[in-house]
């Protein structure tokens, strides 16, 4: 269990005091994948670096399982760091060491024997899918492979917590998904708490179960990912969620306007699906019940998140007004969020 209590970090600069982190209160349960999302400069990096003491708060406290990190120094702090793995945007591997030697690095630091470290490193290389590449140097690896080395290295001392600092931001979309799948897999296998910071909502959607949105050093919104995706409250959250759920909202509006002009008789409805609803054949059930209606799908997208699916669908319904009313009532009965965008 990680707890941030009234955490504030202020940097003194020539331009005056900069509040990198302000009044942050956050609890992260064991075994969760907690995403912290925000644009660059929002204070995410500073916040997670307080977990391993790379940054210290100006005021407030950071606890991990009841141990206050903020007051640890010297040997105590270093021992605590052994229990927290960290992966980085630019991997930060030692180029002078092979894959295996890189994974052994934190074990050497923790004072393990060479034989034990080597055995552990071989097992970890296997776990992250680098079997056969142990003797390669980082310069011979692709970005995705480098991050796998980073992950294996972060896991070497059997940490309870893994911090991920924009770990996929330097990777292409396909490699990003592979690395995220690996993180999810590790989270399940090792019951590891993962705190990840990112500016990509895609990353949150794909593996996080909880999310906190940061802006100007403050957490402006937090909760289970699906909750936040469903009902974003803050403007910044809406921007992140919209980027993800309706990447082409603007286009869709144009399409709706065109369709309204083209089919003035139609009723245009936006359906929003949450969780299990997205798995059900709701639209076809509706058509079976109101067989005289015509349906035209304008646009739609459904995303899978860790807590279920979420998505929206734009449809145009034409037919008898009574049937249309019935269909809309049916959809509402199934708790599908319906919004009539245009009705003749």
């Amino acid at each position: 269990m990680i707890e941030f209590k009234d955490v504030t970090k202020t940097f003194a600069t020539k331009q005056g005091a900069v509040h990198a982190v302000q009044d942050v209160n956050l609890s992260i349960e064991d075994g969760h994948i907690y995403g912290i999302v925000g644009y660059s400069g929002a204070g995410k990096s500073t916040l997670v670096r307080m977990l391993n003491g790379l940054e210290t708060p100006t005021s407030g406290s950071v606890d991990i399982d009841g141990v206050e990190i903020t007051v640890l120094t010297g040997t105590k702090l270093r021992e605590q760091r052994h229990k927290i793995g960290m992966i980085f945007q630019h991997f930060n591997l030692l180029w002078s060491r092979t894959v295996l030697q890189n994974i052994m690095f934190p074990l050497e630091i923790a004072g393990q024997s060479k034989a034990a470290a080597q055995k552990k490193a071989e097992h970890l290389a296997d776990l992250v899918g680098l079997a056969g590449r142990e003797q390669a140097y980082p310069s011979e690896l692709s970005g995705g492979q480098k991050q796998r080395v980073g992950i294996a290295r972060a896991l070497a001392n059997d940490p309870q917590i893994l911090l991920s600092d924009e770990a996929t931001s330097a990777l292409d979309p396909q490699t990003t998904d592979e690395v995220l799948d690996l993180l999810l897999d590790i989270n399940k296998k090792l019951n590891l708490t993962i705190v990840l910071i990112t500016h990509e909502m895609h990353v949150i959607r794909k593996i996080a179960d909880h999310v906190a949105v940061m802006e100007d050093g403050k957490i402006v919104e937090q909760g289970p990912v699906l909750e936040v995706f469903k009902r974003p409250k803050q403007a910044v959250t809406k921007r992140f969620v919209n980027e993800e759920v309706t990447p082409s909202l603007h286009d869709t509006t144009a399409v709706v306007e065109q369709l309204v002009a083209k089919y003035p008789k139609g009723t245009i409805v936006q359906l929003t699906f949450h969780g299990d609803q997205a798995k059900l054949p709701i639209v076809s059930e509706m058509l079976k019940q109101y067989g005289n209606l015509d349906l035209n799908i304008i646009e739609g997208n459904i995303h899978q998140t860790q807590e279920g699916a979420i998505g929206s669908l734009y449809i145009q319904i034409t037919g008898d007004p009574a049937d249309i009313d019935g269909a809309l009532a049916y959809l509402q009965k199934l708790r599908v969020e319906t919004e009539v965008l245009n009705r003749e």
């Binding site: 790379l54 270093r78 021992e79």
Partner: peptide, 21 residues
């Protein structure tokens, strides 16, 4: 690259270990 030094710090390396390793 300062990031490599930061990575070693995050693993709990002492200053001497960072110099040597």
């Amino acid at each position: 690259d300062h990031g490599v030094v930061e990575a070693a710090e995050s693993m709990g390396a002492t200053r001497w270990q960072i110099i040597r390793k």
